[in-house]
Design a protein around this nucleic acid. Structure first.
Length: 385
RNA sequence: GCCAUUCUUUAUGAA
């Protein structure tokens, strides 16, 4: 069964879940007996895609096959819930695990903490952290990293540092991800100087920064309108032998967008190929936002038109950004045209989309159109805030 | 033997 399991795992990596499932079913026909690892592998493949409902289904198959799930099985299912942002389900599966008297280990708890993290539930993450210790389990590096990440989202830097200090008491050496978490906390709270300070600690602790470290440092500058400093970081990472990735560009462009600097944003978009980075959907979307905020509607349209040739399909964020550009230049006819184009292209308008188009109508004194759009939105079951 | 866990980026609006 091992070669089959390995193949299923590979399909999961490639996102070819239909092939993975075929392999799984073929095992029955080929009279290869599935082991518990086979099921676990399939669950993990669904987990990485956040397909928690499918993962739960496979868990049922385990019992149907007369097998008993082990720690890995349940941890993998919990991870599927985690990846989907479903903490409640993750906790429920954890409950089943206890009921089935399957032992939870450090990895199980780490996965639960990560589930809380992804669902923005830092206090619940902390409860899980305490509970694992009550169960005589010793938190490891990943436990602390996940816990720090939970508080980092809220910009709770103080709490992150508190946890960071606890690591030393527990004789656990922080790694790059630990420091990255602290930097994220600074980015989330707008404390960019603190972020740079953490970066210094990291250097003096001889922990090598990664691309993510730089990306997160760039994000610390998002509210400063300091495009210059962001570009300095970019140069510094190049000098430090750290290759920028697409997120680096997206983050830099984000700083430009917030600074209403469409010129630098477009330069960065153009610089991607030089560093062998292909702009992705987020790159284009953010670049369009930069143009919109700079009231450069035509530039926004030009960037938009470059997407299709690049093989990238616009999504709801793309149209949201484009509509923002129309709205910012009070171009109602263009806004309506963009709006109908997005529907033709089967991109579902969100509440934000309606909000932006309605705002454009109000600017153009077309209150009747605004009301009609509002009603259309309600009739589609989209609720305004 | 094969299988599970951690960090970053995109649209409107609230204050």
């Amino acid at each position: 069964a091992q070669p089959w399991n390995a193949l299923i795992k590979l399909c999961g990596y490639d996102g070819k879940m239909d092939v993975a499932l075929n392999l799984f079913q073929l095992m029955g026909k080929a009279r290869v007996s599935r082991t518990l690892s086979t099921y676990n592998t399939l669950i993990s493949a669904y987990a990485r895609r956040g397909e928690w409902e499918r993962a739960l289904e496979v868990l049922e198959w385990v019992e149907d096959a007369g097998l008993r799930g082990n720690t890995i099985t349940y941890s993998a299912v919990i991870n599927a819930c985690a990846q989907a942002g479903k903490v409640h389900q993750a906790v429920e599966v954890f409950g089943w695990m206890n009921k089935a008297r399957v032992e939870a280990n450090v990895i199980t708890y780490n996965t639960l903490i990560s589930a809380c993290d992804k669902a923005h539930q830092a206090s619940l993450a902390l409860e899980v952290f305490h509970r694992m210790q009550a169960e005589q389990l010793r938190p490891d590096l990943l436990t602390y990293n996940s816990l720090i990440s939970s508080f980092a989202r809220d910009g709770n830097y103080e709490k992150c540092v508190e946890i960071f200090n606890q690591m030393f008491e527990a004789s656990i050496t922080p790694d790059a991800i630990t420091y990255n978490g602290l930097i994220t906390a600074c980015a989330a709270s707008g404390a960019w100087e603190q972020g740079f300070t953490v970066f210094e600690w990291m250097m003096s602790d001889r922990v090598r920064p990664t691309v993510w470290t730089y990306n997160q440092l760039i994000m610390c500058l998002k509210d400063t309108a300091d495009t210059e400093r962001a570009l300095e970081l970019y140069k510094r990472m190049l000098q430090g032998g750290c290759r920028p990735d697409v997120v680096t560009y997206n983050s830099l462009i984000k700083v430009c967008a917030n600074a209403r600097d469409s010129r630098t944003a477009l330069e960065l978009l153009g610089a991607c190929p030089k560093n062998k980075v292909s702009p992705d959907l987020t790159t284009y979307n953010t670049a369009i936002v930069a143009c919109a905020r700079a009231h450069e509607t035509e530039l926004a349209q030009q960037v938009f038109q470059r997407m299709e040739p690049a093989g990238i399909s616009p999504d709801v964020y793309t149209y949201g950004a484009l509509l923002l550009a129309c709205e910012s230049s009070s171009d109602l006819p263009l806004a309506l045209e963009v709006f109908s184009q997005m529907k033709r292209r089967r991109v579902k308008p969100s509440a934000t989309i309606y909000h932006t188009v309605i705002k454009a109508c109000e600017k153009g004194w077309k209150f009747d159109t605004a009301v009609a759009l509002y009603e259309e939105m309600l009739s589609k079951g989209i609720t305004p805030e």
